[in-house]
Design a protein around this nucleic acid. Structure first.
Lengths: 252, 252
DNA sequence: AGCTACCTTTCCGCATACTGGAAGCGGGAT
DNA sequence: ATCCCGCTTCCAGTATGCGGAAAGGTAGCT
């Protein structure tokens, strides 16, 4: 908050995010309190956002995210564009395996889930579409990290490696080794809450670089060999549909 | 352009929309030209949007809609919220009928498609998710119009009733009758390009009002009776999942 | 009814944050 | 080597956004 300069635009975006984070509808005063933007200013900006359609008001007058903003977001190449291509492949994988399927991309130093299907047994999964998570603590994030720009990898590898409570800690050395293994073998695995195993593999874009990752959640008991082949086949299918070069091995 | 007062926010939103409408990535100068915002100003605003994540830059430096904006749009109740609830019902309907299925809501005087599945034979369909269309020229729009606020209905009914080229013109009197019929029978039909028939029915929200509509695209030759029952059953399922009161008939 | 409490909206003088032309930079084409 | 086009930085002027104060609204309580 300290270094955040004043600016209508920044405040407007903060207001949008505040409303989004609330989940439901928010009153004007609520927005003002939660965002830290003075009430009068919130009023003015919210009114403008409402006029345009980025915010809507329900019958009680409370604000929520507007359809027009969603329409614009419909044009996001890395989420909607990717999702549109990947959906049929994911559905196919889901129907044949009946295991949780996740599709994610990297946004800076985090992983963002773009689409997912949950099997009944993994329905307790805490992730959600549009949510952000650490790169180094899940298989899907590790795949994305292993193919991220070198300086980002260094930054994360040498940074604090906090892990989920149910997972064992990891050292810098181990993580480096893990990332190298992922690049070599083409897939990553991580246990999930001592009951399941997440297996993830990269998806390549038209320039051959890794643009996303696909993962499958399996019961720990199940051997993952056959599923991995299926997962990788699906990922290859998506990559091909995205126009990826058919090279045998290509890292970005 | 004349009455549109200057304002960073308005210009920022216009820039976002310009980038969205372009479909792909746009250079800074392109954004400036297309949006009519002076180059320097475009530069400043685009930089701010980029910093926040509402815009991204590809490797050529061109701008496209950013993931962060999409994340915020993930919290849009009327599209994503509705879609999340309706998806399984729609998939079920699609799998049993193998006909095009559309889900749409009303935004002011237009219909916006929120989700759809196309059968192979209706793949030439010109609509797209996030697209806007006239309320009075499709079955799904007519359903939404029939349950819209009275003054909006009046405005449209008495306004210019332009129709798609392949469709026959309609008079004010006919349209009023059509809307009344829709409210009475609970569904609407319109022919689509002389080959198909669109059948649509309303979806009710937790307050009993019509919040969306569902449609099915059938070959004109096929009798729509059985499909209509299926469609209405699906719509009832979605309404129930949205917490709609189980009333036999309730108009909003 | 009257009172209180809270939320929304309007008002307005102040000054700050936005503006956009001009000029400098860089890179690709002729 | 020169031109052209697009991106970025600079800067002085002022339009535009700012936010406290006070006026409407509405709901709940005594």
């Amino acid at each position: 908050m300290a270094d955040e300069r004043r600016s209508v635009l920044r405040r407007a975006l903060r207001i949008l995010e505040t409303v989004k984070d609330a989940g439901g509808a928010l009153s004007l005063s609520d927005i003002s309190r939660r965002s830290g933007v003075p009430l009068t200013t919130t009023f003015r900006i919210a009114a403008e956002l409402h006029e345009w359609g980025a915010l809507e008001r329900d019958d009680a007058g409370a604000y929520r995210i507007g359809l027009r903003l969603w329409e614009v977001a419909t044009g996001t190449p890395r989420s909607v564009g990717l999702q549109r291509v990947a959906l049929p492949f994911m559905l196919d994988l889901f129907e044949t395996t009946h295991r949780g399927v996740h599709l994610a991309v990297r946004e800076k130093d985090q992983v963002v889930f773009v689409e997912r299907f949950l099997s009944s047994e993994t329905a307790t999964d805490r992730t959600w579409v549009g949510g952000r998570y650490e790169l180094h603590s899940t298989a899907i994030g590790l795949v994305l990290l292993a193919h991220a720009p070198w300086d980002l990898q260094e930054e994360i590898v040498t940074g604090p490696l906090t892990m989920p409570s149910w997972s064992s800690p990891i050292t810098e050395r181990e993580l480096r080794q893990t990332l190298a293994d992922i690049r070599r073998t083409g897939y990553a695995t991580t246990p999930i809450r001592q009951e399941h195993l997440s297996v993830a593999t990269p998806i390549h874009g038209s320039k051959g670089t890794v643009v996303a990752a696909l993962s499958l959640i399996l019961p720990l008991a199940e051997s993952y060999g056959p599923r991995l082949a299926h997962l990788q086949g699906t990922a290859r299918g998506v990559s091909r549909a995205l126009g990826a070069p058919q090279a045998r091995r290509k890292d970005g």
